[in-house]
Each structure stands twice: as C-alpha cells, then as structure tokens.
Deep mutational scan, measured.
Amino acid sequence: MADEEKLPPGWEKRMSRSSGRVYYFNHITNASQWERPSGN
C-alpha cells in the first residue's frame, strides 16, 4: 500500500479492534499512537 511505504522504518498502520479507529504501531520500539508518524 502506498500509504505504508511513506511511514518511517518500523511503523505500520493497524486498526483498533475496540474502537475501529486506525492507529500506528512501531514493531521496533513497541510504541503505538493515533497520529501518523512523520517520515522526516
């Protein structure tokens, strides 16, 4: 997916099972956040 290609290394887009909202998860640091991480 083009959107995921633009995410910084380690980040992936996921869907919250409880709320149905999109969030972002970093599998390197195990961090998660609602806001899209910047690629800069």
Rank of each mutant, 00 (worst) to 15 (best):
M1A: 12
S38V: 12
Y23G: 03
S32K: 12
P8V: 01
E12P: 00
W34D: 14
E5N: 07
W34K: 14
S19H: 06
S38M: 13
R17G: 09
H27P: 14
S38R: 13
T29V: 04
R14E: 02
G20E: 08
G10W: 06
R21K: 10
R36K: 14
A2N: 14
E5T: 10
E12Y: 03
Q33C: 15
E35P: 04
Y23E: 10
R17V: 11
G39L: 10
G20T: 03
S19T: 12
S38E: 13
D3W: 04
P8N: 02
S38G: 13
G20W: 01
K13C: 06
Q33T: 15
Q33W: 01
P9L: 06
T29G: 02
Y23S: 04
M15Q: 12
P9Y: 04
G10L: 02
N26K: 01
N30P: 01
W34T: 14
E12N: 04
G20P: 05
F25W: 06
R21D: 09
P8R: 01
D3L: 13
N40L: 13
H27R: 15
W11T: 01
S32C: 14
N30F: 02
E5G: 09
L7A: 03
N40A: 15
P37V: 01
R36S: 11
K13L: 09
H27I: 11
S38C: 14
D3I: 05
V22A: 15
I28N: 06
P9M: 05
E35W: 06
E35V: 08
N26G: 00
G10V: 02
E12Q: 09
Y23A: 03
H27S: 12
N30H: 14
R14P: 00
W11P: 01
N40I: 11
W11R: 00
R36C: 14
M15W: 12
D3R: 10
W11V: 02
A31E: 15
S16K: 06
S18D: 15
S19A: 11
K6V: 13
S18E: 14
Q33V: 06
P37T: 00
E4N: 07
R36H: 12
L7I: 02
E5W: 07
H27T: 15
S19L: 08
S16I: 08
E4A: 06
G39D: 12
F25R: 06
Y23C: 04
M1F: 15
S18L: 08
P37F: 00
W11C: 02
E5D: 10
Y23R: 02
M15V: 09
E12V: 07
E12D: 05
N30G: 12
M1K: 13
S18M: 06
P9Q: 09
Y23M: 08
R17D: 03
T29Q: 07
W11K: 01
S32E: 10
E35I: 07
E4C: 15
Y24A: 01
T29S: 06
G39V: 11
S38I: 05
G20D: 07
P37I: 00
H27D: 03
H27W: 05
I28C: 11
T29I: 04
T29C: 05
Y24V: 00
S18R: 09
G20Q: 14
I28D: 09
E35L: 08
G39S: 12
K6N: 06
K6T: 12
A2L: 10
P9V: 05
Y24R: 00
S19K: 09
S38L: 13
R17P: 15
N30S: 11
R36W: 05
G10R: 03
W11M: 00
E5R: 08
R14M: 06
P8M: 07
S19G: 13
S18F: 07
G20K: 13
W11S: 01
A2Y: 04
E5C: 09
G10S: 07
W34A: 15
Y24L: 00
S16W: 05
L7F: 11
W11A: 01
M15P: 02
M15F: 11
Q33M: 06
R21Q: 13
W34I: 09
W34N: 15
I28A: 15
K6L: 09
E12G: 04
P37C: 00
V22E: 14
H27K: 12
P37L: 00
L7M: 07
Q33N: 02
R17N: 04
W34M: 08
N26D: 04
L7Q: 02
P8Q: 04
Y24P: 01
K13Q: 15
R17K: 15
S18I: 01
D3F: 14
A2Q: 10
A2T: 14
D3A: 13
E35T: 13
N40S: 13
R21F: 04
E5P: 10
P37S: 00
S16V: 10
K6H: 10
V22L: 06
D3M: 10
S19V: 09
S19D: 08
M1R: 07
R14K: 10
S18C: 06
R36V: 11
G39C: 11
D3N: 09
E5F: 08
M15H: 02
M15I: 14
P9K: 09
S16A: 08
Y24E: 03
R36G: 03
T29Y: 07
F25E: 04
S18Q: 10
R14S: 03
Q33H: 04
E4V: 08
T29M: 03
